[in-house]
Design a protein around this nucleic acid. Structure first.
Lengths: 131, 131
DNA sequence: TTGACACACTTAGTTAGGCTAACTAACTTA
DNA sequence: TAAGTTAGTTAGCCTAACTAAGTGTGTCAA
């Protein structure tokens, strides 16, 4: 299956959270990296600030994220997740882990070994090449 | 790196062809599967007919694809690639193969073996699960 | 044979998520 | 303090997904 088709299936709203991939990913970075500025978040997500500005606005409107002023810099904001944001993310993560585990149970042990070895290489590439 | 970020890099126009991924992928299906109807193409690409209708219109406007009437069904169209469409696709494919080959040369033989084994499993999954 | 339904495609309108350009406000520095 | 930089937002554009509705063609049964 072409990677594009995988992309298209990813594009849909995550059943477990009701969030689109871009929002879910941004929320995840906020939950684990808070507090952080919009520029930092945009950089982490590899999009431009205006794009992230919209995504954050949507997350804020859903009550998943909140902005606070940065006391050291009146231009900047500090993003953090609300309790609801954390809850939504964790529920989604749990459900995705379960679904992946179910798929992996269909493989035999040789296949799992092959995937695991490849995962190591892919991770190394990811670190070194930012691929 | 999250899959989402990989996909975002895919989203950009392919340097070698000047086509967006959705258009390039559709063109490829047309080149190798012509003649085919819009509905067939939409199904192959896993999108709805209106979406494909627009993509085909764009490809046609660029002179990469042409529509002919289906003599057996006045409702349907038959899509095929123009010579230019074939040329554009082949040039892009050649350049992508070269770029991938260059990346693979940075791996050692153990890593290549691991990737190759995993590819077999992934392909099998793809066939069986339409993943 | 014709009326009803089914099908192929298009059109219209919405939404998400990218982008650049241009703006405001706040900080820094010469 | 004036000039320049930085953080974030707003406006406007694009692609590409969707649904709903329209047009025209095909099919089939009464």
């Amino acid at each position: 299956m072409p990677l594009l088709h995988l992309l298209r299936s990813l594009r849909r709203t995550d059943e477990a959270t009701g969030l689109s991939p871009a929002r879910l990913s941004a929320l995840s970075v906020i939950v684990f990296g808070a507090p952080l500025s919009l520029a930092d978040l945009a950089a982490a997500e590899q999009v431009r600030p205006p794009t992230m500005s919209k995504i954050v606005a949507a997350l804020e409107a859903e009550g998943l994220v909140k902005r606070s002023p940065n006391p050291n810099d009146g231009r900047a904001i500090r993003l953090s997740a609300t309790a609801k944001g954390v809850r939504v993310l964790e529920r989604g993560r749990r459900m995705r882990v379960e679904s992946l585990a179910a798929r992996l149970q269909e493989l035999d042990s040789e296949e799992i070994t092959a995937l695991s070895n490849a995962a190591g290489t892919i991770e190394r590439l990811a670190r070194e090449k930012d691929f």
